[in-house]
Design a protein around this nucleic acid. Structure first.
Length: 423
RNA sequence: GGAGAGGUGGCAGAGUGGUAAUGCAACAGCCUGCUAAGCUGUCAACGAGCAAUCGUUGCCAGGGUUCGAAUCCCUGUCUCUCCGCCA
């Protein structure tokens, strides 16, 4: 959620930037917020004055009662009745204004960073780097779902029986390879100072609001209605919400966490070849990295995080490309996002395996995640996160590119974790 | 699932109707041969002001009673203890 202070000072440039970059016109919402805010502050001024009066009267009444001057006290009491009524009314309209502003703010997306290329769709994303894939193309290579069947690594039909489409069952070496990847990703993160967390897979409603899944995207989350808990769509939700309503000390920053969790997504509206095999699942595993930083450092941190995730892909020896998302493809809460996509040789297709974003203060404003700087003043921190990495599509790319007549070779770095060299 | 107790500042902890004691910790300033001690101050949100500062709100949340609520009433929620169940 955007900061109201910024809307007070820069509303026109925010409107202009969101329109140019995201191609979305938010002028109505922002102007309304601006006007409601003026009204709200005016209301508060009156309300405060009246309340101050009321406090004075109340304590006078108390004094009179103590003295035993009941007559005088009763006269004062009468004075309060009108005042009380007015305070009640004014408080109500103050709260209504406050609520309206909040609801509008929830609907306004983050203001994109200047690096974000303007654009409407994924076609406008900026390709920053791409491995050369021409020499890899080969029609005789199998897509991963056929490899999974051939070597009995992942059983999609069995998952349908037990749960439904999009809940595959990993078997034997398939399950071991998956576990090896998780272990590898966690260990690499630990090496460069990310503290590992093992977090709940269900979260409460407040956490859903904190990271922005609620109120808009509840359709994307599974909901355990009996206990009113949500299955997490990403580890970002429980990890970031640890810091909801927290004031950190500046020297605590940056905070770096890494966590593995399954992720649950309803993916309502997806269909066709996009959902074939491991391309899109309702439940999948992911290792997530999260950082909370000083605002001055967040963009350097974003670059570091992207480089780190790239290094993981390189260690696995997978062809990949790096994109800077354009305004139209940029997530609602993000100010700047890089996507990393590995190449699926069996499908001749790029698969998104990581999305790394700087949210600036958009999340922390909602979370009330702040820090005390050297002048003791309290400021919003910046939050960032990224996948490092999402498992199924990595698995898909990995199986496809390492297939040979005699089997599937396991990348060198994973062998200590799998205990076998090939499938 | 049943029964009971409870939720107050960074922590501990008092406060049953008159506007949040006290202790500990941390930080800042003062004092000071040194050290220790001592003294003073230090919460958050919002608003007004160039500023010093001032006002309002906040004792789990939401409602109610009252001139006035941490305190009384209602609803919700969370935690703890015992019992039951259980990896």
């Amino acid at each position: 959620m955007l900061q109201i202070q910024k809307i007070r000072t820069d509303k026109d440039s925010i409107i202009k930037n969101i329109l140019e970059v995201r191609k979305v016109d938010v002028s109505d919402q922002i102007n309304e917020v601006y006007n409601l805010d003026l009204k709200k502050r005016d209301t508060q001024k009156h309300l405060d004055e009246m309340s101050a009066n009321m406090n004075v009267l109340s304590s006078q009444i108390g004094e009179q009662f103590k003295k035993g001057a009941i007559e005088k006290a009763n006269i004062l009491k009468k004075e309060t009745t009108v005042l009380k009524e007015n305070i009640k009314k004014l408080r109500k309209s103050f709260e209504e204004l406050d609520q309206s502003i909040l609801e509008l703010l929830y609907q306004i997306p983050n203001n994109p960073n200047e690096l974000v290329p303007p654009g409407k769709s994924e076609n406008d994303n900026e390709i920053i780097f791409s491995s050369s894939i021409d020499s890899l193309k080969n029609d005789s290579l199998l897509p991963h779902w056929e490899l999974c069947k051939k070597y009995d690594l992942i059983d999609f039909e069995l998952g349908v029986k037990v749960t439904g489409a999009g809940f595959p069952i990993y078997k034997g070496k398939g399950a071991i390879l998956q576990r090896a990847l998780i272990q590898f990703f966690l260990n690499e993160g630990n090496k460069i100072g990310y503290q590992e967390l093992s977090v709940p897979h269900l979260v409460n409603e407040s956490s859903g609001y904190g990271t922005g899944q609620l109120p808009d995207k509840e359709g994307q989350m599974y909901h355990a209605s009996l206990d009113d808990l949500y299955l997490i769509p990403t580890a970002e939700v429980p990890i970031t919400n640890i810091y909801r309503d927290v004031i950190l000390e500046e020297e605590d920053l940056p905070i770096k966490h890494i966590g593995y969790t399954p992720c649950f997504r309803r993916e309502a509206g997806s269909y066709g070849k996009d959902v074939r095999g491991l391309n899109r699942l309702h439940q999948f595993d992911k290792v997530e990295i999260v950082q909370i930083t000083n605002p001055l450092e967040s963009y350097q941190t974003l670059e570091d995080m992207v480089l780190y995730v790239e290094s993981l892909i390189m260690k696995l020896d997978l062809p990949y490309r790096k994109l800077r998302l354009c305004g139209g493809d940029l997530g609602f809460t993000s100010a700047l996002t890089y996507d990393l996509e590995t190449y699926s040789v069996g499908q001749d297709k790029w698969l998104e395996v990581s999305s790394i974003s700087n949210f600036e203060t958009f999340q922390s404003n909602r979370l009330k995640l702040r820090y005390r700087d050297q002048n003791k003043s309290i400021e919003l921190a910046h939050t960032l996160n990224g996948s490092a990495l999402a498992l199924p599509r990595i698995m898909a790319s990995l199986l496809e590119i390492n297939q040979t007549e005699g089997g599937i070779n396991i990348p060198e770095v994973l062998r200590p974790y799998t205990g076998f060299d090939s499938i």
